[in-house]
Amino acid sequence: MKENKHIAWHTLAKYLSGNAPDKNDALLADEAGAEELAACKETWKILNKMQEMEQYDTDKAWNSLFGRLNEEELVSGEAKPIKRVNFRWSYAVAASLVLLMGLAGFLFLQNLQSGISYINNNVAALTIFLPDGSEVSLNQGAEVKYYKSFGLNDRSISLAGEAFFRVKPDKNLPFIITTQQTAVKVLGTSFNVKSDAYGVEVVVKTGRVEVYRDKNIREALVLNPGEGALSSGVGLVRYQNERENYLAWLDKKLVFKAMPLPQVINDINQAYHTQIELGNSSIQNLVITTTFENNSIDEVLESIALALNLEVEKQNKKYLLISK
């Protein structure tokens, strides 16, 4: 392509997109050159074809294909971090609905009720794409479930364990995450949810998130970036999140600012799923300021040991930090 001539791209684009009714081929050929006009027409033709291809949703198709392969147990061995199971509502509920809806409705509903479930059994985070293009990263042991009706009236998904969500904005389809006792409703944002035996913790990274308890919307809190909420037996409490490393399990980024060693070890254990312990109580008062990004656990511990003049002892899966 010749670069020497000044080409009026905006004029060509305006003409090709049908926004310049006062122009015609002859005029444009004069302005931009016949060769360039022909090339741009060809480009435009290709663009039209490409835009037609955008209707095919590759993520959705891949999820559906992978689900089918998994269901037929055609994906085996180590490459199978995902487990897909079917689950249904109780037939009692279904039966009462049959009375209301008739058989056709029942068959439709039964199809919508079959669900998809993902469990991450590995140490490494597992990221899955939902049918709407939203992403969920599952920490070790986390599980999400959703029904085929996902995306019909809303986007409902249930969670056990810890996961980070990146939700595609959609005002008409609220994204609702339910855990055992708390529901989180969002319109499009990113945030971390951790549910365990003690309660549920939500920390917001971007956007605004609504959290409510026991499906009781009147008790709702609206969280802004940097805020967290803890839902436990005693209620729903808002707090300012000061734990910089709450996402380290996912991004392996650790930031320590004059942090006492026991807390440092706690953060590392959560990020790497390790068991590190302090050998002697005399080192508990040590503090450290440093950052790590995408380092291996051995690199992290070596660096800390070097800075604080400690020794690392490795015993099976456990690590012990002791003073020299």
Binding site: M1, I7, A8, W9, H10, T11, L12, A13, K14, L16, S17, A39, C40, T43, W44, I46, L47
Partner: peptide, 10 residues
């Protein structure tokens, strides 16, 4: 729009 056309053309 001109900027986009130029980018695709190139």
């Amino acid at each position: 729009m001109g900027k986009a056309l130029k980018a695709f053309r190139q």
